[in-house]
Amino acid sequence: MYRIRFHGRGGQGMKTAGRILGTSFFLEGFDVQDAPRYGAERRGAPIFAYVRASRSVIQERGVIRRPSLVVVADDTLAGLPEADVLGGQSADTVMAILSDVPEGTWRSRLNLDSPIVCIPRPDAIKGYAGQAMAGVCCAAVAARLCGSIPKSTLARAVREELGFLAPSVLERSLSEASRMFDSLAPYEAVVRDRPDREFSCDNPPGWVELFHDAAAVAAPVIFGGLTSRLLKTGMWRTFRPVIDTARCRRCWWLCSSFCPDSAIHVGDDGIPAIDYEHCKGCLVCVARCPVHAISAVPESRGVRQENGEEAV
C-alpha cells in the first residue's frame, strides 16, 4: 500500500492534490482513499490531505500515521509543531519538499536520515496568486515518486478534477503538472509499495467512562472575554506586512481600521504597530496604506530579519 500525506496551508490546494493523486491511482486500477483534514481554521492554516492506494481492498481508516511519502508544499511548515510534518516518519519514508533551501540544510535542520527530495519551488507557485497551483505540483510529485502512474493518467486525472475551472487555468495546471513530472525522472518509483498491514483483531480501545456533570458545570460557557487571543493565527502567514515608520504619515489609522483581524494597534504616539502573533498576512493593510509605508516580505525572510540574521 502507498500511504501519502500532503502538508500545506489553506489556499494551497492540498485537497486538490489528494483528489488528483487519488483519481490517478484509481484510473490505474488501485483501490483508493483520499481525504483532506482541516479544522475550523481557514486559508493560511496548516492543512493535511491523505491518500491511500493499494492493489487490494483497503482496511485502514483515518489519518495516516506511518506515511510512505510525505509531500510538503510550503517549507515554512517544517518548523511548525502544529503542522506535524515529521510525524510518523521512519527510515524508509520519503519526504519531498518544495523548497529553495538545499537538501543538506533540511537534513541537518530536521535531523533526518531518511530520503529527502528537495524540489526548487516552481515560478508558478511564487507570489500569492499562484499558491493554489502548489496542489497540482504536489500531485505530480507524488505520482512520479510512487512510480505507478504514467504521465497520461496524471493528465487525465487533472482534467477530471479541474475541468470545471476556466480553460486557461486548466491548461496552466496541465502544463505545470507535466513540467513537474518530467523534472523528477531520476526519482521515478523511489517510494516503495509496502505490504498492507494485517488486521485480524485489533485491540479494543481502552474505554474511558464518561459521566454526566450537572449542566451548570458541563455547559460550554465562556466566562472570560477576548480568549481568542490565545490562538496565535500569526503562523498562518506566508507573507508578513512590515511598516516603515519613517514613511508612515500617521494618517487616521487607515491600516488599523481596515485590518480584518484587528491586528494593528495605534499607540498614543500615533504610530501603528502590527501584532505578529495574530496577523494572518492577508496584506489588506499593504494595499490600503495611502503612502505605501507598508511592504510585504516573505515570512521566512521576515523571521530572519527579526532574529537579526539578515539586514532589513
Binding site: 493560511g44 493565527t233 494618517c251 487616521w252 489609522w253 480584518p260 483581524d261
Partner: peptide, 25 residues
C-alpha cells in the same frame, strides 16, 4: 472624518476566519 474614528480595537484577534475575510472586517 476618519479622525473621529475609534483608534482602539475592541474585537479580539485570533479568530479562525480566512485571511482577508470581508465579513470579519
Amino acid at each position: 472624518g476618519m479622525e473621529d474614528f475609534p483608534s482602539t480595537r475592541l474585537f479580539g484577534s485570533g479568530t479562525p476566519m480566512c485571511a482577508g475575510c470581508g465579513g470579519l472586517l
